[in-house]
Write a protein that binds this DNA or RNA. Structure first.
Ligand SMILES: [Zn+2]
Ligand SMILES: [Zn+2]
Ligand SMILES: [Zn+2]
Ligand SMILES: [Zn+2]
Lengths: 164, 164
DNA sequence: TTTAATGTGTTATATTATAACATTAAGGTG
DNA sequence: CACCTTAATGTTATAATATAACACATTAAA
């Protein structure tokens, strides 16, 4: 419980430049460790997603890549996103068909995504207990869980609840 | 816990005709109650999805609708699916972009979907506790949950685990 | 410095989904 | 029943998301 609030940064005012730099640094380290190449496109794709805590569609990312002097063909962005997702540096929000950078790629596990439908910001919350509970329930039914998708849609603390 | 295993029918041998008929009957009743029109296309769409516990893509459903003498244009199926989903008679699996019929539309709540990646069958399991726990965790972070997506991918009891 | 593997460029196309507007059918009202 | 209003469907077109396939370039490693 000690540091479990670090992820909810997305919904609170914070030094985002620092937030972003830390994430990039972490990815750089992990790439070194794993002997992976964080090429210019990949790095830039990550940076684009790290510009805010808002999830972007692949084609939004692609536009930004194009403006930054990279190509403008879909495979460019899908390859970069594919690499980043494989490594857990970026996550896809299935409900949104959108992509968001992982803020703590070095300690990301059992993530649940909180998506504010007002402001679009996404907080990644680690929920190991719930995750294991789900897997256990499934196991009782003879089902072996490999991967899970958990996404909540709602309204964050900063956003006014819509009046009916 | 008493009847919580009724949903896992999807992964066990069972009288599926009965399973299917019960679901259709339930939907008919709910439509009457709610003064909704279960038109031919809508009914047929539901029937198509109820043919098995495997999720189908919208265009797969559309093909079957076409073969059954209905139209073949996308809006046909998306409208039918839209209606059925609004009413909770059909669910969309976000990870798969595929649609599956609800087996117990009259008592469906807090669903989590177990998707077998070998056979494609989908079991819908009600997980109210986990669901509330997630919402509570989110609430502590100032986040008001409206809807949630929970999908597990793995291997069901009937399918052999892939050997490495 | 050749080679093998990986990453990128490019063209084309597949897949999923919706907008917009015309037409038809259903249900309610006098 | 005739009228009207709403809901549903038909139709055309296009948007949005994603991948296949093959050519070329770069890297790292032998
Ligand atoms: Zn930040
Ligand atoms: Zn918000
Ligand atoms: Zn069945
Ligand atoms: Zn299976």
């Amino acid at each position: 419980m000690a540091d479990s609030n670090s992820n909810v940064l997305a919904f609170t005012k914070h030094d985002h430049r620092r937030c972003k730099n830390a994430a990039i640094k972490a990815v750089e380290l992990l790439c070194e460790e794993r002997k992976l190449r964080l090429t210019p496109v990949r790095r830039r794709t990550l940076e684009i997603l790290l510009e805010s805590h808002i999830a972007l569609g692949a084609y939004e990312v692609l536009e930004k890549l194009a403006k930054a002097g990279f190509g403008e063909k879909p495979p460019l962005v899908y390859r970069a996103l594919g690499f980043l997702m494989e490594q857990g540096f970026v996550h896809k929000l299935e409900k949104l068909n959108a992509y968001v950078a992982c803020v703590e790629p070095n300690r990301c596990a059992h993530p649940c995504f909180l998506v504010c439908k007002q402001c679009g910001r996404v907080a990644e919350q680690s929920v190991p207990k719930v995750s294991k509970q789900l897997a256990a329930t499934a196991q009782q039914l003879g089902f072996s869980t490999a991967t899970s998708v958990m996404e909540l849609s709602g309204v964050c603390a900063q956003c006014p609840t819509e009046k009916s």
